[in-house]
Design a protein around this nucleic acid. Structure first.
Lengths: 300, 300
DNA sequence: CGAGGAATATTAGTATAATTCATAATATTC
DNA sequence: GAATATTATGAATTATACTAATATTCCTCG
């Protein structure tokens, strides 16, 4: 039989991308080369590896067996390369790190400065997107920081910190409308990511029933930055992750309307493919991120 | 960097054999090809992989890293091949089974008949030698059955059964010399693998001090079969593993001199490299052998 | 010390297999 | 059903793995 590594690599990439052309791009090869390689692999495996269905390529039974083998084989090779690099004081490789847009562009970049300075031989590439799970499973990303819950089968899940929300407005807005208690929000203009009420629902649920205001004037904005800037302009009251407005709160162009109210929501997690979580560079980045949690964020 | 499977295979085989020429033979290549491959691998790893010392080749630090990677990589590939073969109802591969000469040539072959008949798609090759550990670590053998204790670091060790010994002689010899108790052996001709007394020591130690005979006439024979045949010929009393003489005892050409004496010695174990113990064919053979233990041997 | 032997390295040529280019076949979309 | 995107195929090219012959190194032993 004698499986061949080039062919396995081509197959593995196709399996991840579900697309020969895309796989060829990732491998810096032509589509033809990838097709040939997979074809040869199928011949030596003695079985088709892909079925073409309406929703693209699917792995056959034999394909699934090979896919699993590829996962460990290529991960093991990468691990060896990393260790060799360590012995030779060379670059330890790349971590392609994904995060949500707001968190990534504001906090993450800032807090990772320390890691980047202390680990010059680990290179980090960033991808800030909303869809993070798929590229992680694709191995288009190595690690993602996400506040959604993903079912962790082949994924390793490391809790980072709880996401804290805050009700914010400009100081002028609060003064002008005399907002002191949640009930004072009734009738006030409220900035929300949705019209359905789900966005502010988390806030309302944190209150005893008697203190829940009737939110009647809702302005929809589909971007958190927009809500923050609108609040700064005194256009209304916003409900946003606290970390997004740290700077505005410090600069006093925004105030926390109910500073005593603790509004926690879902956790932030680090997700990685379990196999790849063993890489040294991955482990050290995770350790660093977990440390951040206690030193910086909870204090903030 | 981009490690290459052909090169890794060559390197791995050299590391196992500690010999380029021998590795080339195993791979059905020329020594030149192996040297080229290792050379290229060293170039792409950026480091020497072997040091030449007085006692042959030794792995460098980088070499050790790669060796470990190779162990998992090639085992994983073999595992995939086995699973693919299973899907396609093809041959599941080979188990190169090692065992001690006496045990292998007599009992093992006989008891494995059932496995071989029931598993026609698993091919077993046999190697009956005295030195078993080294070829196992070499991966010249996949599995060995041995009654020595080996330190099980990277080895998986499965206890099989206890080795029982017996004092045997021809019926005529026992009658002629009137041997009833161990003390009656004093002065009788005793057949032994050694002259030093270690061989019969196990027997003597099983007796209370007062009943230990003085063995004065020792005939040395360096082969168990020889001892057995000599005993059959009435040349003396032998001390041999019980399984070796089952047939002779049944055919009454030999008798157990002290049938009530239970003479146990070391255990028989199955040893495998831990990683390779995961292969399906290995697991099923081990399961079969363990079953043999309870059904056949303990009854015997 | 130096010849003989055993093991590994090197060089150059050949054979093999991987990749591309061009294009055909196939499936998808509107 | 034409237009588009995707995969498969065949021939030519390129890269590289392999061999044969030979050089080098290292060890052994008279």
């Amino acid at each position: 039989m004698a499986l061949n590594l080039y062919q396995l690599k081509a197959f593995f990439t196709v399996a991840q991308t579900r697309n020969f052309t895309e796989a060829a791009k990732r491998l810096y090869l032509t589509q033809s080369a990838v097709s040939h390689s997979v074809g040869k692999l199928e011949k030596s495996a003695g079985d088709k590896l892909f079925n073409k269905s309406v929703n693209g390529l699917e792995l056959t039974e034999a394909g699934k067996i090979l896919y699993k083998a590829c996962e460990t084989v290529f991960c093991e090779i990468e691990r060896a390369e990393e260790q060799l690099a360590a012995v030779k004081n060379m670059n330890l490789g790349v971590i392609r790190l994904g995060a949500t847009v707001e968190f990534g562009t504001t906090l993450l970049v800032k807090y990772l400065k320390g890691f980047i300075n202390n680990n010059p031989r680990v290179h980090i590439d960033f991808q800030f997107r909303h869809e993070l799970l798929k590229p992680l499973l694709n191995e288009e990303l190595d690690m993602i920081i996400d506040c959604s819950e993903h079912d962790a089968g082949e994924l390793s899940k490391t809790p980072l910190f709880r996401e804290e929300y805050a009700v914010i407005a400009s100081p002028g807005f609060v003064r002008k409308h005399g907002i002191r208690t949640p009930l004072d929000l009734a009738g006030q203009n409220v900035l929300s990511m949705d019209k359905s009420g789900r966005w502010w629902g988390h806030f309302l649920n944190a209150l005893p029933e008697a203190e829940r205001p009737e939110l009647s004037a809702v302005t929809e904005m589909n971007h958190i930055r927009a809500i923050i800037n609108a609040a700064v302009e005194g256009l209304g009251v916003g409900f946003v992750p606290r970390y997004c407005v740290m700077k505005e709160l410090k600069g006093k162009i925004l105030v926390e309307v109910f500073p005593k109210l603790k509004l926690f929501e879902g956790n932030f997690y680090i997700y990685q493919k379990t196999k790849r979580a063993g890489l040294k560079r991955h482990r050290s980045l995770v350790a660093y991120l977990k440390n951040i949690k206690s030193t910086h964020l909870e204090r903030a």
